[in-house]
Amino acid sequence: MALANAASTHLEAGRLPEAGTAAREALAAHRALGNQRSVGNALYITAEVSREQGDLAAAREAIDEAIAIALALRNHTLEGFWLITLGNVQRAQGAYGDALASYQRSAMLHRRLGDRTREALAWRGTGQTYAAMDREDEAAAFHRQAIAVHRDLGDTWELAVESEHLAACLQATDPDAARALRAEALTHLTEYTDPRATALRTRIDG
């Protein structure tokens, strides 16, 4: 479990090689122990690392197995969370309809569970998918919903990330609003110094 937590932390920080190594070690250990829930967690991390590294086939294989575990356990908390990763992989594969369906079910499950943060993350994925389909107005609507939740919960990191996504949607039609969103996002990033935050800050500065 400590290895899996380390892998998750490296992933969130943008240290992908370290995340991948720790996730593989955790996965092997949990398979040996027969702990299916923890196997699924390690698979989800592996899928996200593989997706960000561009290995979509490996990402899809890992997240499909994780989802199968969640369904076998009849665990809606796990299913809802891992469906976000499935949607991310499907979006990267260009399977936009499938991605939207994954995000929609994830959002529905998280609403039932009362997990507003993860519901907002499912909305983010929906917005990113509509943006990939050049449906910027629909994308912006979902990003605005997610921003409202992150602002209400005081989650400055997710608020900064979401603001950058919304700014990208508005860049062509309302550059002033996009600029204001990016300026606000920078104020939320000051306390973060990890590689992922540094990359986001550099992108927004640009």
Rank of each mutant, 00 (worst) to 15 (best):
Q53N: 08
T187Y: 07
A95L: 13
R112C: 05
N5M: 12
L159Q: 12
D152M: 06
A120Y: 04
G87I: 04
H10A: 15
M1W: 07
A19H: 05
Q145M: 12
F81N: 14
N41H: 13
H150P: 00
G20V: 01
A92N: 03
L27P: 05
R179W: 02
A131H: 11
A132G: 11
R118K: 10
A139G: 11
S50T: 00
A140M: 07
D194R: 00
M133Y: 04
Q128S: 12
L170T: 02
A22S: 14
R51M: 12
I204P: 02
Q171H: 07
A58L: 01
H143L: 11
R144N: 07
Y130G: 07
I67G: 11
W157K: 01
G114Y: 02
T156P: 00
G206W: 00
A107D: 09
E119D: 03
G14H: 02
A28W: 01
L78A: 13
D115N: 15
Y130S: 08
N75W: 09
V89T: 10
L3R: 12
D137C: 00
A101P: 02
G40P: 06
L200C: 04
A132Y: 03
A139K: 02
A139L: 05
R105I: 01
A122S: 12
R74E: 15
G87D: 09
G20M: 10
E191F: 03
R31W: 05
Y192H: 10
R179N: 06
T202M: 05
P17V: 08
A22Q: 15
A178I: 00
I69C: 12
I67E: 13
F142K: 04
A13S: 09
T173L: 02
A107L: 08
A66T: 01
A2S: 14
R111L: 06
Q93S: 11
T46S: 15
M108K: 07
A29Y: 04
S163M: 14
D64R: 09
R144E: 15
H150K: 04
D205V: 08
R203Q: 10
A180I: 01
A178W: 00
G40L: 12
A185E: 05
A199Y: 00
E25M: 11
G94C: 10
E164Q: 10
D98N: 10
S38I: 01
L170Y: 03
G127R: 02
P175C: 10
A72R: 12
G206A: 14
R116V: 08
A59K: 01
R37F: 11
A23R: 07
Q36D: 15
A141N: 05
L113Y: 03
E138V: 08
A172V: 01
G94S: 11
R31E: 14
V149C: 06
A139P: 12
L200G: 03
D64P: 03
Y103W: 07
Y192V: 03
A2Y: 03
D137Y: 05
E48R: 13
G34F: 11
A177L: 01
T117G: 13
H110C: 03
Q104I: 00
T117K: 13
